[in-house]
């Protein structure tokens, strides 16, 4: 009897909730990164509400947790950089697909993929990529774009991984070790020491956007509920996301940025002045770039095979 009463109360509560908001809830798994600014702006300005959507952001402690949430159906979508984890999850049967593109490497715009070095290791500055030979260098994640960018640098310099000591370290640990001279260089995410007050303590090196201009490195990915459910929901979500991105690119500042600067101890003025031209305003997907990354991931032994880019994406949401 008690159990029935409990179930009835629960059902009534659920009905009340859906009547009170009347909105479809979308659970987005994402790390609080700078490139999320457009998304948060869309939420702050009510663009999702305009589309009849309600957003819940799930923040896993680590990027890898995103794929587990998405594959397990605990998240409906994710905004993340391309990585071996993402393409492997989809390639191995997870019901998820890349639905839209978000960010491109843009020369003269931002520090994503910039090399920073310690003053001890590069006393004369980064005069040549050849100087990387024999150095100890950190990348943030084994399967992420920073590691891919490192290979772009090495290829340009005619070096291989055997010529240097590559360590996988979190960006903050790497920054501390770089400052202490225990590390020679790191590949920046673009929102770590690049935007901190300590930037001047490091030697600024080349940025990968000059070597790989236009490379699309961040995407919006949908999970099972959006792929197999009513297409209109996914399209509405994408529409609101792109609207938020356009507002952000046109200069509107989300409250999220202040919180982001405070949490990560970054300089707010530097953050506000950051170039915003890297965002893809129409959500178009660059298949060649996905294929290039998939080929790299397979060549590095991070993927069991080279997945075909076409099999990793779903254009139905963009085509509307």
């Amino acid at each position: 009897m008690n159990r029935r009463l409990f179930a009835a109360t629960l059902a009534a509560t659920a009905c009340r909730r859906s009547r009170s908001s009347g909105k479809r809830r979308i659970r987005l798994a994402a790390l609080p990164r700078l490139h999320m600014a457009g998304f948060y702006l869309a939420d702050e300005l009510g663009y999702f509400a305009d589309e009849g959507l309600e957003i819940e952001v799930i923040k896993p402690p680590l990027a890898a947790g995103i794929y587990v949430l998405l594959s397990g159906g605990e998240a409906d979508a994710t905004i993340t950089s391309i990585s071996a984890g993402l393409i492997n999850a989809i390639g191995q049967g997870s019901r998820a697909r890349i639905a839209a593109g978000r960010l491109r490497l843009t020369p003269g715009c931002g520090d994503a993929g910039r090399l920073f070095g310690s003053r001890q290791a590069f006393p004369e500055g980064f005069q040549s990529l050849q100087l990387l030979r024999g150095k100890r260098i950190a990348v943030n994640s084994a399967g992420g774009p920073q590691n891919f960018y490192l290979d772009v640098f090495l290829r340009t310099a005619g070096l291989t991984r055997a010529d240097l000591d590559v360590q996988t370290l979190g960006v903050y640990e790497a920054a501390v070790l770089l400052g202490s001279g225990r590390l020679d260089a790191m590949v920046s995410l673009g929102e770590d020491i690049a935007l901190s007050s300590t930037r001047g303590q490091y030697v600024e090196g080349p940025v990968v956007s000059d070597l790989l201009p236009g490379f699309m490195y961040s995407y919006l990915t949908f999970g099972r509920s959006l792929l197999d459910g009513d297409l209109a929901v996914g399209r509405a979500f994408l529409r609101a996301c792109l609207r938020g991105t356009r507002s952000y690119v046109s200069g509107t500042i989300p409250r999220f940025l202040e919180e982001f600067a405070r949490t990560n101890q970054l300089e707010l003025p530097a953050l506000l002045a950051m170039c915003r031209r890297s965002f893809v305003l129409d959500g178009s997907i660059d298949l060649d770039d996905i294929q290039r990354f998939a080929a790299w991931s397979a060549a590095q032994g991070m993927s069991p095979e080279e997945y075909q880019a076409e099999s990793l994406i779903d254009r139905r949401f963009l085509d509307a």
């Binding site: 890898a64 587990v68 492997n88 399967g143 992420g144 000591d165 590559v166 360590q167 370290l169």
Partner: peptide, 20 residues
């Protein structure tokens, strides 16, 4: 946490690349 090879590295790398 930090090693270029070893079983711990293998586990962490697999977690990051969804290689179950």
């Amino acid at each position: 946490v930090s090693a270029p090879e070893g079983i711990g590295h293998m586990i962490w790398m697999s977690w990051q690349t969804f290689a179950t």
